[in-house]
């Protein structure tokens, strides 16, 4: 009923949609195309979209360096952050959803506001603290930093998720004599899998993406996550070797894209609950 009823209108709409799709995906297409080109073809004139002699050479060149190490570091940091932020965020969100108290609304607003706080300002004191605690150049500095920037969203997202869960199940558990901890772990968390999945993906993606903390709080290749590592090592090493650079970009994108494709549905649901309500 809602779409344009005449054929011309429908065709026009499809054309517009197709055009925007091409415009949006063209950069990614060009990245892949370049990554599979031999060095000689990159500067070919006119440029080719489908490589004439596709090759994995660039990928081989890219992974011989410390890229694998950066990759692993990013994974460790993102996984650690996901655990810490989900754990602390879920507990707080549950309290705010089920046991509202005086000031809980303000606390929630404070969480939201903290997203706007200037990160460089926060980082200065964090840097000084980490230096004193000898946590600089450790995964902990990054995990804590990434937790701080994701926690507010996690609390918001999970609070709105818990709000949608029926309370009756928990009340029944209490009547059966279950304690609050038991109820939370055995009953509420299992029911919350979609919400927890959405927030975990959000945290993982954010941590994988984060640049400033990685750049500042690590100083050795053994600990650098991907974004900082790429910018500090590869951009110098691979200057003007575009296939290698595009291969690096592709490698940095793939795991997160795979994760996302897999969990997309939950994620969009979780995200829009939080975003539209908030």
């Amino acid at each position: 009923m809602r779409y344009p009823r005449n054929v011309a209108g429908r065709i026009l709409l499809y054309v517009a949609i197709l055009f925007s799709l091409i415009a949006m995906l063209f950069p990614i297409g060009w990245m892949l195309s370049t990554a599979f080109k031999p060095a000689s073809e990159v500067f070919a004139f006119p440029p080719t979209w489908i490589p004439a002699n596709p090759t994995f050479e660039a990928f081989r060149g890219a992974i011989t360096g410390p890229l694998a190490r950066f990759f692993l570091n990013s994974f460790i940091v993102a996984a650690g952050t996901t655990l810490l932020a989900t754990f602390s965020g879920a507990l707080a969100a549950y309290a705010l959803s089920r046991f509202p108290f005086r000031g809980s609304q303000s606390l929630l607003l404070f969480f939201l506001a903290s997203l706007a706080f200037p990160l460089p300002l926060l980082m200065i004191s964090m840097y000084m603290m980490f230096a004193q605690l000898r946590l600089l150049n450790s995964f902990w500095a990054l995990i804590i930093g990434h937790t701080v920037i994701t926690l507010p969203i996690v609390v918001w997202l999970l609070k709105s998720f818990f709000d949608t869960l029926p309370r009756e199940v928990e009340e029944a558990a209490y009547i059966d004599g279950a304690g609050p901890f038991h109820t939370l772990i055995r009953i509420v968390f299992p029911m919350s899998r979609p919400g927890l999945a959405a927030s975990s993906i959000f945290i993982f993606v954010t941590s994988w993406n984060e640049f400033m903390f990685g750049l500042t709080f690590t100083s050795s290749n053994e600990l650098r996550p991907l974004p900082a590592g790429i910018s500090l090592v590869f951009l110098q090493e691979f200057q003007y070797r575009w296939p290698e650079m595009m291969a690096v970009a592709t490698i940095a994108t793939i795991p997160i894209l795979a994760l996302f494709l897999f969990f997309q549905r939950q994620f969009i649901q979780g995200l829009t609950v939080g975003a539209v309500k908030g």
Binding site: P227, M245, T250, A252, I268
Partner: peptide, 28 residues
């Protein structure tokens, strides 16, 4: 279409940055 476009949202900033440098390279 929606799924395809939404993928752009997870392209890491660092990848988008290198890519932008290549797309807008002045010579090639």
């Amino acid at each position: 279409f929606r799924t395809a476009i939404f993928q752009v949202w997870v392209v890491p900033w660092i990848a988008a940055t290198i890519l932008w440098g290549w797309l807008f390279n002045s010579e090639y």
